[in-house]
Design a protein around this nucleic acid. Structure first.
Length: 248
DNA sequence: AAGGAACTCAACCGCCGACAA
DNA sequence: GTTGTCGGCGGTTGAGTTCCT
């Protein structure tokens, strides 16, 4: 498909920026005569040097009759919160339940009123996670010193340490932030789930998953690709099969 | 009073799916 | 099956406004 900036003739120098009262008048008159739809012809026949897309947006978000102006009411806010909980960022779906409000309006409202709150609560979460992380590292250090856990460099190394009478805990090493994730060789699937849980729960706020070298680790689908091979555990990270003991 | 920071919101952008030719 | 157009959506931008120091 050819890249285009708007609907209609792409080469044409379309007008951009704020709409003038004259343009609004032309658009309103045209739509009231011919109805909504066929937006590319609106721009052509209404004498507007705007893309069809721009015309549609202006009509839907600003000129359409029945649009409410002014503050979102507490009732509307309640509906937005509730519906966002169900549908997430499906602004057009949410807007259908708020007559007179546009998806753009709701989207902007959410961003300005709730992203703020999210930010401040994220800060709190981060602080909490930092404390947990420190406590966790301290606990791991104690376990290491007591010999309850071992950090290994290879499968062979891991096998050498494996004591049949007790369940060994190994750690997978992340190249990021000196993190170690606990790995139980017995139950790979539950490990995968616990990793995901830990990842989101304890460290989710601290790690940028996208920046992680094997970012897919946080995705259950990938973690489920774990398999047992001769008592060694392998984990598939986005196509690359890696041994969980490697990278130490 | 001034100027920088934070906020608001209209408009734009890029992408996707549906549909017709 | 392929290509082009249109409608629609969510994310982002940036100019104008308000707030804060």
């Amino acid at each position: 498909m050819v890249a285009r900036m708007g609907w209609g003739i792409p080469e044409q120098g379309w007008r951009k920026g704020p709409w003038t009262p004259e343009e609004d008048k032309l658009l309103s008159e045209y739509v009231s005569l011919h109805g909504e739809g066929r937006w590319s012809s609106v721009s052509r026949f209404a004498g507007l040097n705007r893309t069809g897309k721009s015309c549609r947006l202006r009509w839907v978000n600003y000129l359409r009759p029945g649009l409410k102006r002014g503050q979102i009411t507490p009732e509307e806010e309640g509906i937005i919160i509730e519906l966002h909980g169900i549908w997430g960022n499906k602004w057009s779906t949410i807007a259908r339940y708020l007559p007179g409000r546009t998806d753009n309006e709701i989207k902007n409202y959410w961003r300005t009123h709730f992203k703020k709150k999210e930010k401040s609560s994220q800060k709190q979460e981060k602080r909490k996670a930092q404390t947990l992380k420190q406590e966790g590292q301290h606990h791991h250090q104690q376990q290491l010193e007591a010999g309850d856990i071992k950090i290994v460099n290879s499968i062979d190394d891991a096998k050498m340490h494996e004591a049949p009478e007790k369940q060994e805990i190994y750690f997978m090493y992340s190249t990021l932030e000196d993190q170690r994730l606990p790995v139980m060789s017995q139950d790979v699937a539950s490990w995968a789930d616990s990793v995901v849980e830990d990842y989101y729960g304890l460290w989710g706020g601290l790690w940028n998953l996208d920046d992680h070298p094997q970012g897919q680790i946080a995705h259950t689908s990938n973690c489920k690709k774990l398999s047992m091979q001769n008592e060694a555990t392998t984990c598939s990270f986005g196509g690359d099969s890696k041994n969980i003991y490697s990278g130490l």
